[in-house]
Write a protein that binds this DNA or RNA. Structure first.
Lengths: 233, 233
DNA sequence: TAGATTGTTAATCGATTAACAATC
DNA sequence: TAGATTGTTAATCGATTAACAATC
């Protein structure tokens, strides 16, 4: 339809919604549905239809007025735009429960993630096999990363060890780090860190539970009927 | 110092930074440091010192001009505010690799999370023990949740099964759901869902890697020296 | 055509930043 | 006191929402 201004970059909140839209579109394709409206995409992502159209306006892919978005076409476009069709080679450091779970997570492979090596410093773990990978000592990380031009590192070690792991990754040339350790990493400007701090997330859930309890107490004291409406037995 | 307006609720972005500040304060306490400045807290969270002071202005806890924030005092305040000191009982459904890893994650217990039951529908898993919990069939979930007044549910099942698990949780009276399945859940208004969609997060990392590659190609074509600066060998 | 839904614009909303008087 | 750092205000920035002409 209209003309896209070339200088405008997609906002991060919009970017984060694209995978949700993509999933909804794939579901439509699998159900044999040809077109999906912005309202339907918004429903999947929990945002308004206006928001969806705004998000998609940052892409160079148009919907069809009066019809919606071509499910197959936009899904493919998003796979390209998000790089899901490219193979992304990664190393994972920290072969604890979480690290093993991520290494074996089936959803990642479908998005092009290839974990090509797993590292740990626990002598008891080195040599063990997770999936198709043998666990290697962290000392071998920088050279391997450098030699194979690995772009991505996943950190699932305890917080105290995370910074030195990040340093080793940066030394090897890694520029994207997915950090599951509950800590702040210090890296050069050209390295992109995404934190997946589950303990911090839990803290916000914890706050939510605490608030709910408080408001329930208040409500019970004020009007017993409202309280019963919210907590049907 | 000043007067807090009572009607102002803390914005979600601010709320999500509080656990990071809390962690930084705990580190200070462990190092025997009495006060931490907004600049130091901001450094830990990757935000400006002005942002930190703004975030903390939503709390009813004051720093000391010219000195900073009392590490022990503010840490305790945040533990209360975030509800970290309260025990929060939860059930977890989906005893796959990720579910087991979360059930055994040591960081959660320190924040007051008690996973008091684990469910799965795979007959091969039912009866197995994870940590201190025996895996139970999902059919037993609603009554157990109701009887013990559990507030929180953690979902780590495949996407196709997630909605029915959420329904069972809601039936039992759960009002906070932590959803690790890559799907959108439909729940009543009084239920609070936090999505931890790792596949969607991976998609944004994937986009980042793709963009870096593109800009490196461009930069290499334009000025070879810049490219070398960004990729020291 | 009539109905539906798009892409875009302008208005609104909310979060971040900058600046500084207050104060420890 | 002098120096440092706070809490708050106002200015800025950016994202979301509402409205509607364009159009399939």
């Amino acid at each position: 339809m209209g003309v896209r201004k070339p200088g405008v970059r997609i906002p991060v909140p919009s970017l984060r919604r694209l995978p949700i839209y993509h999933r909804r579109l794939r579901e439509a394709v699998e159900s044999g549905i040809g077109f999906v409206s912005s309202a339907e995409l918004g429903e999947a992502a929990g945002v308004s239809e206006a928001q969806v159209r705004k998000d998609l306006s940052y892409l160079v892919y148009d919907g069809r007025s009066g019809v919606g978005y071509d499910a197959k076409g936009l899904a493919s476009y998003l796979e390209n735009y998000l790089g899901l069709i490219n193979d992304k080679e990664a190393v994972l450091v920290g072969a604890g429960n979480l690290g093993r779970a991520l290494a074996l997570y089936p959803g990642f492979g479908r998005y092009g993630l290839r974990i090509i090596a797993i590292f740990d410093n626990d002598p008891a773990k080195i040599g063990q096999v997770v999936g198709e990978q043998e666990i290697l000592p962290v000392s071998k990380l920088p050279s391997l990363v450098q030699r194979l031009h690995i772009q991505m590192g996943i950190i699932t070690v305890p917080a105290v060890a995370a910074q030195e792991v990040a340093d080793a990754m940066v030394t090897g040339g890694i520029t994207v780090i997915w950090n599951f350790s509950p800590c702040t990493l210090h890296v050069p400007d050209n390295v992109w860190v995404q934190n997946e701090d589950l303990a911090a997330q839990l803290a916000t859930l914890s706050h939510q539970i605490t608030q709910q309890k408080l408001s329930n107490l208040t409500r019970t004291a004020e009007t017993r009927e409202d309280s019963l409406t919210l907590h049907p037995r």
